[in-house]
């Protein structure tokens, strides 16, 4: 009795906190999504989502591509990192984290300067007598921005898992006839699946909802869900449509998390 009443007391602040700052805002978003400007109930916002099909598809495709490339870059990096001496591991990890200490806006803005028509890269190219390349405003630039900004979120969880792998499992794999490549495929990758999955979640979710990266590196030509929501909120003051899009974004994220959790549960092959 005593114990449970104390538990209630201890839990209460957290319950109030989550109610106030998680449940209530979600409710408000849902309310706006299903009402019009006058506050009357309507499905119109949801029906109108169809107009943004291509934006949603673009967001998904861009973040998917960015996530995959992050994984391809991060996995070998994390693998080799985990095999370095402890000192090098610490230094390299610091280098991975370092850009994250800077604000995302500043990082992205800097890339804008580097990539723009008169930017650093094109300057070098023209000096070499080559044609300048149009980077900004392309899908490539946006995806690049996502990869650059979120790569550490892929490296860190994978590195954490690999560096904690029981070394005797690797010995056992060699012992049973695996060469070093087979060892990676048959033992290390399957065992680092939890790191891969959380890395995917941590890159995919912010990528799919970003607006700043697409705005700056996409030069306004590329609109993702995040940009569209921002426009509804800040430019056209259509909170209802913005809320409906936010709901859809949330649903997408929920679905992808669900798929990943499911694949984490059945211990078969890796589903990327």
């Amino acid at each position: 009795m005593k114990k449970s009443s104390r538990n209630v007391l201890l839990n209460t602040p957290y319950v109030i906190w989550s109610a106030l700052f998680v449940i209530v805002p979600l409710g408000i978003v849902a309310y706006y999504a299903f009402t019009d400007a006058d506050g009357t109930f309507t499905f119109n916002n949801i029906k109108n989502l169809g107009n943004y099909g291509s934006t949603i598809a673009d967001s998904l495709i861009y973040s998917f591509v960015a996530t995959i490339i992050c994984l391809i870059i991060a996995y070998p990096f994390a693998y080799f990192l985990a095999n370095f001496s402890e000192n090098s591991q610490r230094t390299l990890m610091l280098l991975v984290m370092l850009p994250m200490w800077m604000n995302l806006l500043i990082r992205t803005y800097s890339w804008m300067n580097i990539l723009e028509q008169n930017g650093l890269i094109n300057n070098v190219l023209t000096r070499l007598g080559l044609e300048p390349v149009q980077f900004l405003g392309t899908a490539g630039a946006v995806i690049f921005g996502m990869i650059y900004n979120y790569l550490p979120y892929m490296i860190i969880p994978i590195y954490n898992v690999i560096s904690k792998l029981d070394h005797s499992l690797l010995d056992a794999a060699s012992d049973l006839g695996c060469n070093s490549f087979q060892r990676i495929i048959k033992v290390i990758i399957p065992l680092s699946k939890p790191g891969i999955l959380s890395g995917i979640a941590m890159v995919f979710v912010p990528s799919v909802s970003t607006f700043y990266i697409s705005q700056k590196l996409g030069s306004g030509k590329i609109l993702l869900i995040g940009d569209t929501i921002e426009r509804f909120m800040k430019t056209s003051y259509n909170y209802n449509m913005g809320a409906a899009l936010s709901l859809i974004l949330m649903a997408l994220i929920l679905i992808s998390t669900f798929i990943m959790n499911k694949s984490a549960r059945d211990d078969k092959e890796l589903i990327v």
């Binding site: 029981d166 499992l169 012992d175 049973l176």
Partner: peptide
């Protein structure tokens, strides 16, 4: 290398593959 030797090991903590 280890994977080509006609010897096998039973490791201290068994090293069974958890997956």
């Amino acid at each position: 290398p280890a994977h080509k030797r006609e010897v096998n090991t039973i490791f201290q903590r068994y090293a069974l593959f958890p997956h």
